[in-house]
Write a protein that binds this DNA or RNA. Structure first.
Lengths: 216, 216
DNA sequence: GTCAATTGTCTTGTATACAAGATCGATATT
DNA sequence: AATATCGATCTTGTATACAAGACAATTGAC
């Protein structure tokens, strides 16, 4: 629990939104939230203002806050940008790799291998996240790492859905192997290309996404 | 003036920060801001929470808000990400161009030409911004356009400084010409490459940036 | 004379009170 | 019966009050 209630509430509500406890389009009543968390309206409002600034909710004047519904097309656009940023992170990582970041990537990759072999979709979900974060960190660009982490958080629910589709888990791990190889080989441009392809949504994977979004 | 005071204040304070009226590291006193804008502390706090969420200021618990000082290295990282996003915008624009967006880019480009020929650095600054925004819009990706616009805003003061360095104005316009050509030719990959080079800071331009930041 | 501790003031964090606008329902009129 | 208008209630927006922590200054001791 963070030091001030406002920030704690922000994280709490953000998590609730990203875990789909508050559905897109749902209205967020300040009083309800306040009594639910046992605080007054003031810190709730501060948390909501922050979420509005981040773009997770929309506060329409005098009409309250609603959870933003990105919609399939916008989610696609977000993946498109994510792919680009991850590509940059990968290319920088390949060029700036050192012993520590190399070992961090290798360790996360090994954990992914275990989860993938076990066919444990939930475990792979977490290990996959750690793998990508290791690459962000290896880029040695604090700003890029922050941007990637933030966007990754917002896309978290959809990434999770994607892992459920047929064979995605094995495919994903195979792609990871190639990515690790080229990063360790120091080939920045190839790392960029592979990560862009790995993260991006192309072809029939878009309809998979739409389908899984409809049924969640 | 926006509908609610909080949002209005956010824009007001954000502008003040980005125009360097509030310097990096400066402490922002809630009461001072409240009386300056003739409101109570509540909307001021809400504005500050939003700016904290965006990353423009930092609110340390019980110790108040200070304007974040990115520092040369972080500004460089921001330009690096900006270059990547603009590259994506350019490549999408090249592929998705239609009559309306094509004309918008052409018009902005013509205004840049006039300012460049006149040697009017201030006018070129504005026209250049419009030119880049026309490309964001032509990408037809709302999310990407928002991300680009937001980052562009934060880098605004530094871009302005960059235009002051020797010959940058003429060089910039020359690069614009090439960019327009490849976008209009529909060459997405070349547009990406040229825009990345145009926006990114490489080699001696980094020391130019550091130098201009020190003397502002 | 210098360093540390304590007190006082200032600022932030949270709660509550009050005002203004929006939504929803009821009633009246066509 | 349907629609429009008026009003009541509920929610948000802003202000103010109060509490608690941080910083600074002054005083005392070594």
């Amino acid at each position: 629990m963070s030091e001030n209630v406002g920030r704690w509430l922000r994280d709490e509500i953000e998590t609730a939104i990203l875990s789909n406890e508050f559905s897109p389009g749902e209205r967020l009543d300040e009083m309800v939230l306040a009594s639910r968390f046992g605080v007054s309206r003031t810190p709730v409002r501060e948390a909501l203002m922050q979420l509005d600034a981040i773009g997770l909710i929309e506060i329409r004047p005098r009409r309250g806050a609603v959870v933003i519904d990105p919609g399939p097309h916008r989610v696609y656009e977000m993946f498109e940008v994510m792919a680009e940023l991850e590509g940059l992170a990968g290319s920088l990582a390949a060029r700036r790799l050192d012993d520590k970041t190399r070992e961090a990537i290798a360790a996360a990759h090994r954990r992914c291998e275990l989860s993938a072999e076990a066919g444990d979709s939930d475990a792979y979900y977490y290990d996959n996240e750690a793998f990508h974060k290791a690459i962000y960190a290896a880029s040695r660009s604090d700003f890029l790492e922050e941007q990637c982490t933030q966007l990754h958080r917002r896309l978290r629910p959809y990434r999770r859905l994607q892992l459920r589709v047929r064979n995605r888990l094995a495919t994903s791990f195979t792609e990871h192997c190639a990515i690790v190889d080229v990063i360790f080989a120091g080939d920045g441009e190839e790392a960029r290309r592979l990560l862009r392809a790995h993260v991006g949504i192309q072809g029939e994977r878009f309809s998979d996404l739409v389908a899984s979004m409809a049924t969640r």
